[in-house]
């Protein structure tokens, strides 16, 4: 009984807290620019409004156009449920769950790109092509980070891998994972979440033709993915699992807030990189994770 209650509580945390992050980022950006900015809860209002709205479907779209965002949302949520939450641990953990988590995010990517191609639009095709192409490099960086953590902890269970700190290579890993976070969540310098009509986008351009409840699912899924990557990053770097429960929870919350504010500052201070630079930037992230791996490997022996 308690486990079911705990499961529901955990689900609620993910579902209800995730849309907070984009709000905080926007607040930080507004503050840096000297504006008042939209309210922190803006995304909640948007989601509620979209959920009530009607839908306009492209004449070309198949049922997959609606199923795609739904499956992608479920996949991100499932990945989130695998991720341990500091002192709470994971609701489900088994050997190899980390690989499942990575591939669940890939499933979400497949579904989003599928839905983008439904409309036969050149823009959305372009966005989908960029998304799946750059994901190849991001995937390499993520799996290298996982290798580092696995080597550090000698384990292949997320809760055990994320408990200790990343050791000497923590800084390298943190920067590498942060770059991947920016790329995977369509933030500057990879993508500009503020624009909708430019040829220069990756992720945002894929959802141009979505509207109403399916678009709400897309936005909510994106917010959950951002929260997931932030929590993953914080737990990978900080020794959250080794602290007493209250301190761990505090560290986790503070860490996630720190990452969110950091994203806001990055977006305020950096311009979007030219597309030719994107692979370069992601390769840098991969190399940083690789160096962290080398540190974990050779440093661990010493």
């Amino acid at each position: 009984m308690t486990s079911i209650l705990e499961f529901i509580a955990r689900l609620a945390v993910w579902l209800l807290l995730a849309p907070l992050l984009p709000g905080i980022i926007n607040k930080v950006k507004a503050w840096v620019a000297g504006r008042r900015g939209p309210p922190v809860l803006q995304l909640y209002y948007d989601l509620a409004r979209l959920w009530r709205k009607g839908v306009v479907l492209s004449t070309l779209a198949s049922p997959g156009f609606i199923a795609g965002p739904a499956v992608a949302w479920v996949a991100v949520l499932a990945a989130a449920m695998l991720l341990p939450l500091g002192p709470l641990g994971a609701s489900l953990s088994f050997r190899g769950d980390v690989i499942l988590l990575i591939y669940l995010l890939a499933l979400a990517r497949f579904c989003t790109a599928w839905a983008a191609l439904e409309t036969g639009s050149a823009f959305e095709g372009m966005g989908a092509a960029r998304e799946v192409s750059y994901a190849v490099l991001a995937e390499a960086a993520v799996i290298t980070a996982v290798l580092t953590l696995s080597m550090q902890s000698g384990s292949l269970v997320l809760s055990a891998m994320l408990a200790p700190s990343a050791g000497t290579g923590a800084v390298l890993l943190a920067v590498g994972l942060f770059i991947v976070l920016l790329a995977e969540n369509c933030r500057v310098p990879f993508d500009d979440p503020n624009t909708h009509l430019e040829l220069t986008m990756i992720h945002e351009v894929m959802v141009l033709d979505h509207s109403g409840p399916p678009f709400a699912a897309v936005l909510h899924g994106a917010a959950m993915k951002l929260l997931l990557f932030s929590i993953l990053l914080v737990q990978a770097v900080l020794p959250v699992g080794k602290l007493p429960a209250a301190a761990a929870a505090g560290a986790l919350v503070a860490g996630v807030l720190g990452v969110t504010v950091g994203i806001g500052f990055v977006e305020s201070l950096l311009a979007r990189a030219a597309f030719r630079r994107v692979p370069l930037l992601l390769t840098t992230a991969f190399l940083l994770c690789l160096f962290a791996l080398l540190v974990a490997w050779k440093g661990g022996a010493a």
């Binding site: 959920w51 009530r52 709205k53 009607g54 839908v55 306009v56 479907l57 492209s58 004449t59 070309l60 049922p63 609606i66 199923a67 965002p69 739904a70 409309t119 036969g120 639009s121 050149a122 823009f123 959305e124 009509l197 141009l208 033709d209 109403g212 409840p213 399916p214 699912a217």
Partner: peptide, 19 residues
């Protein structure tokens, strides 16, 4: 669920918007 939700309100078919 999303299918039902999308079909409950007004559902219009239109040309691909494509900006």
């Amino acid at each position: 669920w999303l299918w039902r939700r999308a079909h409950r309100g007004s559902l219009a078919r239109a040309l691909t918007w494509d900006c």
